[in-house]
Design a protein around this nucleic acid. Sequence first.
RNA 1: GGGCGCGUGGCCUAGCGGACAGGGCGAAAGGUUCCUAACCUUUCGAUCGCGGGUUCAAAUCCCGCCGCGCCCGCCA
Length: 585
Amino acid sequence: MYRALRAEVADVLERALEAQELPTDDLGIEDPPGGVDATLASSVAFRLAGTLGEAPAAVAAQLSDEIDVSDATYIGAVTNAGPYLNVHASETYYEETLLAGLDPTYGTLPDRDERVVVEHTSANPTGPVHVGRARNPIIGDAIARVLSAAGYEVERHYYVNDAGRQMAVFTWAYETFEEDDLPAPDRAKPDYDLVRYYRAGNDYLESENEQKVAAAETEIEAIMRGLESGDEATYRRVSQVVEPVLEGMRQTLERLPARFDEFVRETRFMRDGSTEDLVQRLKALPNAEQADGAWQLDLAGRGIDKELVFVRSDDTSLYPTRDIAHHEWKLRNFDRAITVLGEDHELQARQLRAALDQLGNDVSRLRAVHYSWVNLPGGEGMSTRRGTGIDLDDLLDEAIDRARQEVEARMDDRLRDDDLDEGDIDRIAHQVGIGAVRYDIVAKQASKAITFEWERALNFEAQSAPYLQYVHARCSGILTEAGREPVGSPDADALTHPTERELLAVMARFPAVIEEAADDLAPHVVATYCRELAETFNAFYRECPVVSSEVSEDTGEARLALVSGAKHTMANALDVLGVEAPESM
RNA sequence: GGGCGCGUGGCCUAGCGGACAGGGCGAAAGGUUCCUAACCUUUCGAUCGCGGGUUCAAAUCCCGCCGCGCCCGCCA
């Protein structure tokens, strides 16, 4: 409703300005600050005051007279408050919002026949997923979800780096070291098992004498050349390391849950010849040049100081080369391609974009979202190779444990008499624990750095997932208590309490929030919205009984519809964030 | 050194050109015979890193500086 109202306001304002032959390029439509009794506002009067030579307040008064709302559906009235124009929503606005909320899919935008691929996580299959990496699947999955809610057809991809030097080192280490010489794995999972070889291999290369390292390097290079030439035997050797580790990582990500439609392996673009073909096209570009036997693209003309090396002097390709082939493939198969990357990939992403552009691809269909680092207190980073960092599995286990303790602690002084059983406690512990971790990460702008702290990540009160989930559970509780579904034609007139109107007004904005989050690839705006919705609902909850003998039938019916709408809105908003919405907690 | 990003009460965070900078944590006080108190109410607390500039209007845009992060590999 909000989106329709906004469009209507623009229309009405434009007509009023045109009638007075005033410019309509900047209508200054905005959300009024809290405490102002209006649904939308405009500050056009400021802009026109100069050209008209009158005070803004006078212009606003004049405009509010000029504006004709008689044809409008969602605008009730336009008044002026000093220099501002305040738009008040019509009764229809509230009525239609109440009605729309009854739809369990409320907030989902119409299909738009556009295929989008969201690539996220894509962590090298070297070992267990740690918390530093977890920001990627949580943000990536939320972006995929918000795009899906916004009507796009979404596919989620994990790009697997199963070629290249790191994998060659890993394969060599796996074939070289004896299990007896390694520490016991932290968990009985393939990623925890195999990462020990990876760490041992890297240690060896860093600490052994020159001769031994040189011998190892020879073996590693042989593996890389085997991959490059498409040698089946080499591919199988690497696969026996990559695939189990990837499976272990997939299992951990599944817990979030972050699921993928496809794991796209890098070797695919070597084996199908597309990398080779690409290299020929890159070499033919005017700014391609050879330096010390290697081939590179000089991107200075595009404002990038660093050359993009795409063929080594030994004639093998590099990760960025294959990634260009990968992205051409994405652009062939999808209308838009979005990649979620760490801030350390910023330069690489710019180079990739520039190269793709030069090759004649439409790079406007490409977008990258970069997120900042998750550090440990004290500033230490998380590294799979060095074994520093907190494993995501441990964080999730701890989150669930603490959530379970909370549930059990609250059982004793619980007011509601609904006999939660063991299964419920387990369910709630998972929903709350995992939800808290996800929300803590998704609620923050991706560009802000995060310092990981247990207490903060696992705080279950106030601005956290459980606070929002609780609202959903409260709605469910009321609907259960009522013992029936709201009727199909509720009467918004019966909702006269300010908290009721406010709740409807917040609900009305939900589709616009989804649209904005999708346009900006910013799921955190949905997180912020959830908080507002929760606060507004709690105010209503405090003031307005729904299932009570003191409430008239009409009012009770309308409130039941309102609760149903709030429940659907919260459920769908949480779903976009990947946070579960419990029926009880 | 260069490039990109970030800097909002003790801590975390929203806002990123318009009406008194919203929340939360924390601290203090209150609220449950009534739909779940993982809740709500009140109080405390901010030169929006610093200095200039643009504008009727700047946390928001521009310039400079400071601090922090990331990047500047024939690694990925």
